[in-house]
Nucleic acid binder design. Structure first.
Length: 290
DNA sequence: ACCCAGGGTGACG
DNA sequence: CGTCACCATGGG
């Protein structure tokens, strides 16, 4: 990997195992949208147009001093080639490879991940994206970029200041009080960064103390924003896929499932994202097949 | 009209 | 530990 700079771009060269479109649309982040042959979005208040040109990743609209921030967000420095080799050589996981190849697990801003995945519960990706976008439009800072107006993800204070009625009007449904409570707690000084260096078990327990957050949402926050690469969110798709790939179509006990997950090693969470992509591409009927 | 979606909670056994 | 109704919303 090598970094170059132009007038208005950061260029990460020779990045293996990177599929931009797939990584932006796979359901880990909800704010990227296709634009001018790339992906338009805003991270930590910084707007950018991401483009993939061969094995280079171009960050248009970013200045050189943001290179470290973008490299971290895109997980540029991690050795995905070895993770993908591990997947390919596991007979249970090899079927995931064609669909999963090139997915990178981004390192999102923790508060954004917290609120986004509270919204995600019992919901679908398209609708989650819509709700998050309306939330940002309502109380996020507007930024003009390439003729568009983007909205930063709102601060904890500005979300905490919304009434339950305002949150419900965004389409959040019964999750409105969860969102308000979580934002208030963060605005009150709760430091999510503290979870970064905790053990997975401790960090899970911390997040599960939030109203409306259980083990699945907790693991999403830990995997997608706090670098717990062994956090393993189990939603309906993962549940189906694990049954099909690891338990011959039979339903496993929770302990057996997590035993299998532990066997996948310290990057089980990243592998989880590969399995998720495979499961969604295959569809429910084919997964539960026959 | 039902079923489903990156689920959590509380109650019950 | 497992199951189950319920929760608000929109698309299939």
């Amino acid at each position: 990997m090598n970094i170059k700079f132009t007038q208005d771009s950061i260029i990460f060269e020779n990045v293996p195992c990177f599929d931009l479109e797939k990584s932006c649309s796979c359901g880990q982040a909800f704010r990227w949208r296709p634009f001018m042959g790339g992906q338009l979005g805003i991270v930590r208040g910084e707007p950018a147009l991401l483009k993939q040109e061969g094995d280079s990743v171009v960050i248009r609209g970013a200045s050189p001093e943001r290179a470290a921030m973008w490299a971290h967000y895109l997980d540029i420095g991690r050795d995905y080639a070895s993770i993908e080799r591990e997947v390919m050589s596991d007979p249970r996981l090899a079927v995931c490879f064609p669909e999963a190849h090139g997915i990178r697990v981004f390192n999102q801003e923790p508060f954004e991940a917290l609120i986004s995945f509270i919204i995600s519960q019992n919901n679908n990706i398209k609708r989650i994206s819509g709700i998050v976008e309306r939330l940002c439009r309502k109380c996020g800072e507007p930024v003009s970029f390439m003729g568009e107006t983007l909205y930063a993800f709102p601060s904890p204070e500005s979300i905490a200041a919304l009434t339950a009625e305002e949150l419900t009007a965004l389409g959040t449904g019964y999750r409105a009080p969860f969102i308000k409570a979580a934002a208030s707690r963060i605005a009150g000084g709760y430091d999510l960064e503290r979870l970064r260096d905790m053990s997975l078990r401790e960090a899970r327990a911390e997040l599960c103390s939030f109203l409306g957050i259980g083990p699945k949402v907790a693991d999403c926050v830990l995997l997608f924003s706090l670098q717990h690469t062994d956090a393993f969110p189990v939603d309906v798709w993962i549940d189906r896929a694990m049954k099909a790939l690891f338990f011959e179509g039979n339903r496993a006990k929770k302990a057996e499932l997590y035993e299998a997950v532990t066997g996948l090693g310290e990057y089980s969470g990243i592998i989880q994202q590969y399995i998720f992509q495979y499961a969604r591409s295959l569809g429910r009927s084919a997964l539960e097949g026959k």
